[in-house]
Design a protein around this nucleic acid. Structure first.
Length: 813
DNA sequence: CGTACTAGTCTTTTT
DNA sequence: GACTAGTACG
């Protein structure tokens, strides 16, 4: 019995076909990681391929780690020698070695979105681009798209001829690249671009990597963009042992430049390619799978496949429409708690998925209220928080004095009385002499224009020099501590009475422990590599598998994961699919959203709950949204609750115009040009839909279910509710990077309460207490729960509430 | 130079 | 609603 016996026929074919180009079309849950890991094992064990000759590219560091681990289990040795990493990390490793050939310093820094924006701003100022007319954002995304397509500034300029705005972007692009070069920095897109450039300009370097990576595998191939494809094409060009794995139905990163043609046209580029389809789904129940299939079928641009499963039907999909987002969140939290109580599911088996990060807030509040452990993935990245970026900027300055962005970030943090004017003068001086900002600082006393401010600059330079000289004998931890001590960064935070100072200090502590962990994991930890690792972490990388918490994340972050119990929240037209895509005149945009829905549905192994709200606050505006078209595409037979009956007819359909999907396909553009319809709801607020998108939904629905598919506009019952009691602020906390401050307090309290007899509450049964939002009330009961004291209070105004002492912050009156 | 307030924008998704 | 950039003022 060998390890390969457990594979199905198609998986075996994927594993045993080791030479030449291979395209594996792997449907959701079809065991593609299994196939990939076994393939690597097979290469090493049966074909005697050296692990060093294998390159596997994954999408996230987390996926890379998992792959390594699984190969290790199969082979038992050598897996640490396989090069498994993301596109970006792969490129950094190559560039660290060879980028000097392109005129960069090998210790270049990597700019994140914030840094980029800063540069773009400078560029706009310099080129006198009016950012009201042409937004930084637009310029940035134009540059990013250009890089994804491997278009250089010069080429961009040529293409922009005759177009005023494009011409300005071209100028900005050119200037931006010049600045990056001057600062010895690369942005995310450059990492790929420059590697391709390096390979093209240096055939010897390319060949050495071609010889090294004789077997190349790429996971999540449907999400590669043009530059990534080119990179892979170059690397695989000599031996052509390229195996790509993907699912066109799960392509959800078009906004990031992903080119779905890469997978759809693979066979055209590699005519000798062997195509293998993995269609048996091992993950989900029949009902879940049926729903997913029904939804994705509405997409036109896809390779046909039919996922099937051996599994039982399973339970029906649950569907609930609520009046408000509050009710929705409340229900989900209750439902999770119930499943836990009845032993149906543990917390770690549940996940709540939503379209936008902003939707996590309401859910977090409810989860905290009910004491359910959870972890939010994403939102504001830990490493893009102000305080973290400040500390990192110190490290960057110490590491690479040419990084002007970093130097300018910290020159007056903490306050040293160095203002904008001084910085400007120094920059002018630097520009004249063509030296870096930092080098200009060193010559501060020679800059005539800044006068007496020069005195303030000197101590800064001396300090940085001192840090640099300590670099040799300090480890990372000591260095960071020294920075905090010398600059008084934490002291300043402690003295300021801003609300979030404490959070910030905690975040800094978290950074320190990350640095310590990094040093433990790496024998010869050095500053540059630490900074580089930090720059390339994804949110999902921080999720630990074994902490038994409900995971809250966007649908995008959920790709590649699976859970027994999945909640799809906010399933409303306007939220998901997003308003932007509904009104877009490109029908492909809604198709991408549909793929996202497909990803969401197929995350569920056993149980799927779909929820939505009639009323929802989005960006400070109350919106009334109908049930998502994607829900309507699920056969009603699979749902436990019927879709709501339409109450307001908002649009009269003309069946003659569109008798079915084919006729829609036949004349999409005329349809789309007929503008938008506005639908007034009973309450204030309007919702717009593109007519085409609207009609399409309608027709698909009719065709499948023979029902009137009118958009539903229920008049929401607006119940008077107390406003949210707390705003969860995300903060890093010990081993749990993204639990909220309030949850952290609960934890502290419960730990403290265990040792100190419990009188620490300061109030007891029968006492009158005051709550920040609920006002005054009487304590009825205090019970010690598993995490904290549960206090029951009857408030004078809002009635009885049961809450956790640690976070309710009740005061005796 | 630093602070406090105001106005405007934003988000759909991220390596 | 929340965050940020820009501005007016001390």
């Amino acid at each position: 019995m060998s390890i390969y016996d457990t594979l199905n026929e198609q998986q075996k074919k994927a594993v045993f076909t080791t030479t030449g180009p291979v395209l594996i079309l792997a449907g959701a849950g079809s065991g593609k990681t299994r196939a990939l890991t076994h393939r690597v094992a097979y290469l090493i064990e049966e074909e005697g391929v050296s692990p060093t000759n294998i390159l596997a590219i994954t999408f996230t560091n987390k996926a890379a780690g998992e792959m390594k681990e699984r190969v290790n289990q199969l082979v038992g040795f050598g897996s640490e020698q396989i090069w498994v990493s993301t596109f970006h990390s792969t490129c950094v490793r190559i560039l660290r070695r060879y980028i000097d050939r392109l005129g960069f310093d090998n210790n270049f820094t990597i700019y994140d979105t914030d840094d980029q924006k800063g540069i773009i701003k400078e560029v706009c100022k310099k080129l006198e681009i009016d950012t009201k007319m042409l937004k930084e954002r637009t310029i940035m995304s134009a540059i990013s798209s250009a890089k994804d397509e491997l278009i250089s500034p010069t080429e961009y300029e040529m293409q922009a001829l005759g177009d005023y705005n494009a011409g300005r972007i071209a100028k900005a692009y050119k200037e931006y690249q010049a600045t990056l070069r001057k600062n010895n920095a690369l942005d995310f897109d450059d990492l790929i671009f420059k590697t391709v450039e390096l390979f093209k300009a240096n055939p010897d370097v390319l060949e050495s990597y071609q010889n090294r990576f004789r077997y190349i595998m790429v996971d999540e191939y449907q999400d590669t963009n043009t530059s990534q494809f080119e990179l892979i094409r170059l690397l695989a060009d000599k031996y052509r042992n390229l195996c790509v794995v993907g699912d066109d139905d799960q392509s959800i990163y078009k906004f990031r430049g992903a080119n779905i043609r890469n997978i759809l046209d693979f066979e055209k580029v590699y005519t000798e390619a062997c195509v293998i389809k993995l269609e048996q789904n091992y993950r989900s129940t029949q009902n879940v799978l049926d729903a997913a299939n029904a939804v994705i079928q509405n997409n036109v641009a896809r390779k046909n496949k039919a996922l099937w499963t051996d599994k039982k039907d399973g339970s029906l999909l649950h569907f609930h429409q609520f009046d408000t987002a509050y009710d929705e969140a409340e229900y989900i939290a209750d439902n999770v708690r119930e499943k836990k109580r009845e032993d149906i599911a543990d917390y770690g088996e549940c996940a709540v998925l939503y379209r936008t990060n902003a939707q996590s807030r309401m859910l977090e509040e409810r989860f905290i209220m009910k004491g359910i452990p959870y972890q939010v993935v994403g939102g504001v990245n830990f490493y893009s928080r102000k305080e973290i970026k400040d500390i990192l900027a110190y490290l960057k300055t110490i590491d690479n004095g040419r990084d002007d962005v970093a130097v300018k970030r910290i020159i007056n943090v903490p306050k040293r009385g160095i203002g904008a004017t001084t910085i400007l003068r120094v920059q002018e001086y630097a520009n004249e002499r063509n030296i870096s900002f930092y080098d200009a600082l060193r010559e501060a006393d020679q800059i005539m224009t800044i006068g007496k401010s020069a005195v303030k600059l000197k101590p800064f330079v001396t300090m940085i020099q001192a840090f640099r000289s300590k670099l040799e004998f300090f480890n990372l931890e000591d260095l960071i501590k020294d920075i905090l001590e010398t600059t008084g960064y934490v002291r300043e935070l402690e003295n300021s009475d801003t609300e979030d100072a404490e959070d910030r200090i905690e975040n800094i502590d978290e950074l320190l422990s990350k640095a310590v962990a990094y040093e433990k994991a790496h024998e010869e930890a050095n500053l540059s590599e630490f900074l580089e690792e930090v720059a390339l972490v994804a949110d999902i990388d921080q999720v630990e598998g074994d902490n038994n918490k409900v995971l809250l994340m966007t649908l995008h972050s959920a790709k590649g994961l699976e859970f027994s119990h999945v909640y799809l929240a906010g399933m409303e037209d306007g939220v998901f699919p997003s308003y932007m895509t509904i009104v877009s005149d490109n029908p492909e945009d809604v198709e991408e959203e549909r793929r996202l829905a497909y990803v969401g549905i197929t995350r569920a192994k056993d149980d799927l709950t779909i929820t939505c709200a009639r009323q929802r606050m989005i960006r400070g505006e109350t919106q009334y949204n109908p049930v998502s078209r994607f829900v309507k595409e699920i056969p009603p037979l699979l749902l436990d609750h019927k879709l709501p009956e339409p109450k307001y007819k908002s649009y009269e359909a003309h069946d003659d115009d569109f008798s079915g999907r084919n006729s829609f396909k036949a004349k999409p553009y005329e349809a789309r040009q007929s503008g938008t319809i506005q639908t007034k709801t009973a309450q204030a607020g309007t919702v717009q839909f593109s007519e085409a998108g609207y009609r399409k939904t309608e027709n698909v629905y009719k065709r499948q279910f023979g029902k009137d598919a009118d958009t539903i506009f229920d008049k929401p019952k607006v119940s008077a509710r107390p406003k949210a009691v707390l705003k969860p602020k995300r903060t890093a906390y010990e081993d749990q990077p993204y639990i909220t401050r309030a949850a952290a307090q609960i934890k502290e309290q419960s730990q403290g309460a265990a040792s100190s007899s419990g009188s620490s509450l300061g109030y007891g049964q029968g006492d009158r207490v005051k709550h920040l939002k609920y006002g005054e009330g009487t304590v009825m009961k205090i019970e010690s729960g598993p995490r904290d004291y549960q206090v029951t209070v009857v408030f004078d105004e809002v009635g009885q509430k049961i809450m956790y002492a640690g976070f309710a912050k009740l005061k005796k009156v």
